[in-house]
Simulated scan of single mutants.
Amino acid sequence: MERVNEAMSRVKTLIGMEVEDPEAQEANASLIEDFNRNCTLSTKQRLYGFAVCFVAGVACTLLSMIVFLNPIKFATMFTLGNLLALGSTAFLMGPKRQMRLMVDPVRVYATGVYIGSIIIALLCALYVRSKLLTLLAIILEFGSLVWYSLSYIPFARSMVSKVLMACFDTEF
């Protein structure tokens, strides 16, 4: 049984979940920590939550392609899909750890631009109702999503930057 528990803790560590330490849990007695401790999910519930949220996010993103010619509906569906897919990872690692990773100095600017582009896309689609501005905001959102995602892969952003610089180098 001990080997099974050790294997489960390794799996939890690999997928980004925090391994439960009873002594550390007793030390944190604040109200928020107490609330979080009482609202924990099992590993199976976390995986189900991740799968449902991720599939819903991908479905919204793919369904947004159907209404591509209507930028307002497209922006709403595409943004909802991005938010669901982003929220799905909170099931695996927990919202507290995800927020900590999002504001990590390595990706704080990418996170800011990504969240800002989501807000701009929704504002352009729902309030301004300008097709051109909505389309530009969606392009910004997609680019910032790619840049934000690359921040989780070591050296990926520097590699993409070098490739783009080589492609768009105008010196002959």
Score class of each variant (00 low, 15 high):
1 M>F: 15
2 E>V: 08
3 R>G: 09
4 V>C: 11
6 E>I: 03
7 A>V: 12
7 A>R: 14
8 M>S: 09
8 M>K: 11
8 M>T: 09
10 R>V: 11
12 K>Y: 01
13 T>D: 09
16 G>E: 12
19 V>E: 10
20 E>A: 10
21 D>Y: 06
22 P>Q: 12
27 A>G: 05
30 S>P: 01
30 S>G: 09
33 E>K: 03
34 D>E: 15
39 C>H: 15
40 T>S: 11
42 S>L: 01
42 S>H: 02
43 T>W: 04
44 K>T: 15
44 K>P: 06
46 R>V: 12
46 R>I: 11
48 Y>F: 14
51 A>V: 13
58 V>Q: 05
58 V>P: 01
60 C>I: 02
62 L>G: 14
64 S>R: 15
66 I>S: 12
66 I>V: 12
69 L>P: 06
71 P>K: 03
73 K>G: 13
80 L>H: 11
80 L>Y: 08
85 A>G: 14
87 G>Y: 05
88 S>N: 07
89 T>R: 13
90 A>Y: 05
90 A>T: 08
93 M>V: 15
95 P>Y: 05
97 R>L: 10
98 Q>W: 08
99 M>Y: 06
99 M>P: 02
100 R>N: 13
103 V>H: 05
104 D>K: 06
105 P>I: 10
105 P>M: 07
110 A>F: 01
111 T>M: 08
117 S>Q: 03
117 S>H: 07
118 I>R: 01
121 A>V: 03
122 L>V: 04
123 L>V: 12
127 Y>F: 09
130 S>V: 02
131 K>I: 10
131 K>C: 09
132 L>E: 07
133 L>E: 05
136 L>Q: 00
138 I>E: 05
139 I>V: 11
139 I>G: 07
140 L>G: 01
140 L>Y: 04
140 L>Q: 04
141 E>P: 00
142 F>I: 08
143 G>W: 04
144 S>H: 06
145 L>H: 05
145 L>W: 04
145 L>N: 08
146 V>D: 00
151 S>G: 01
154 P>I: 02
158 S>I: 14
160 V>L: 13
163 V>P: 05
163 V>N: 07
164 L>C: 12
167 C>P: 09
168 F>Y: 03
169 D>L: 07
172 F>V: 02
